[in-house]
Amino acid sequence: MDAWNYLIILALVIYAIVRQTQKHEVVGSTRFKLALIYAGVGLVIGGFNLPTGPWGWSFLGFSLVLSAVVGLVRGRLTHVWRDPADGRVWAQGTAVTIALFVGLILAKVALGTIAYLNDISDDGGTGEVLLMIALMVGLQAEIVWRRARALGARASSRAPAAPAAP
Rank of each mutant, 00 (worst) to 15 (best):
L10V: 15
I14G: 03
A16R: 06
I17W: 11
R19W: 07
Q22H: 11
S29Y: 08
Y38E: 12
L43Y: 12
G46P: 13
G47F: 13
F48H: 08
N49R: 09
P51E: 08
G53I: 11
G53N: 09
G53D: 05
G56I: 07
G56L: 10
L60M: 14
G61Y: 04
G61I: 05
L64V: 15
V65I: 15
S67D: 00
S67L: 06
V70M: 11
L72I: 15
V73D: 01
V73C: 02
L77P: 00
T78N: 01
T78A: 02
W81E: 05
W81N: 04
R82P: 02
D83Y: 01
A85F: 04
R88A: 13
R88T: 13
V89R: 01
V89Q: 08
W90T: 02
W90G: 00
Q92H: 01
G93F: 06
A95L: 06
V96M: 07
V96L: 13
T97W: 08
L100Q: 06
F101E: 00
F101N: 03
L104W: 10
I105S: 04
L106N: 01
V109C: 06
T113R: 03
A115T: 05
A115F: 10
Y116W: 15
L117A: 15
N118W: 13
I120E: 03
S121M: 10
D123E: 11
T126M: 15
E128W: 11
V129P: 00
V129Q: 07
L130T: 03
L131Q: 08
I133K: 00
A134H: 03
M136D: 00
V137S: 02
